[in-house]
Amino acid sequence: MSLSQDDVRRIARLARIAVSDDEVAASQAQLNQLFTLIEEMRAIDTTGIEPMAHAQDVMLRLRDDEARAANRREAFQAVAPSVENGLYLVPKVIE
């Protein structure tokens, strides 16, 4: 298994990270090195083993349906890059 430069560009695009051609080449080499490391895991027979998604075998705790969060817009938007009339501003969203 080896990643092409197109693979790197595709996942960089998925992850919304701009990459230069140099970065693509460097990432390709490093990721392929990493995947060589990861490769040895793939040969292990794990038939019948249940995947472990959580460190503890617990069940979801549920909270009561109560709307009790205070309005903290001012504090939250104090750290926002761009707001107007209480809205977060972003470059035009085109559907």
């Binding site: 909270r63 349906d65 109560e66 709307a67 009790r68 969060a69 309005n71 903290r72 817009r73 939250f76 938007q77 009339n85 209480g86 809205l87 977060y88």
Partner: peptide, 27 residues
């Protein structure tokens, strides 16, 4: 028709001023 959001205690009521019903997880 819950009073609060699925993962936070912010209100689900319709029509409030923008971003006034947001808990830390909602933003």
């Amino acid at each position: 028709t819950t009073k609060s959001k699925i993962f936070s205690a912010a209100s689900t009521a319709f029509g409030a001023a923008p971003n006034t019903q947001t808990a830390v997880v909602d933003i």
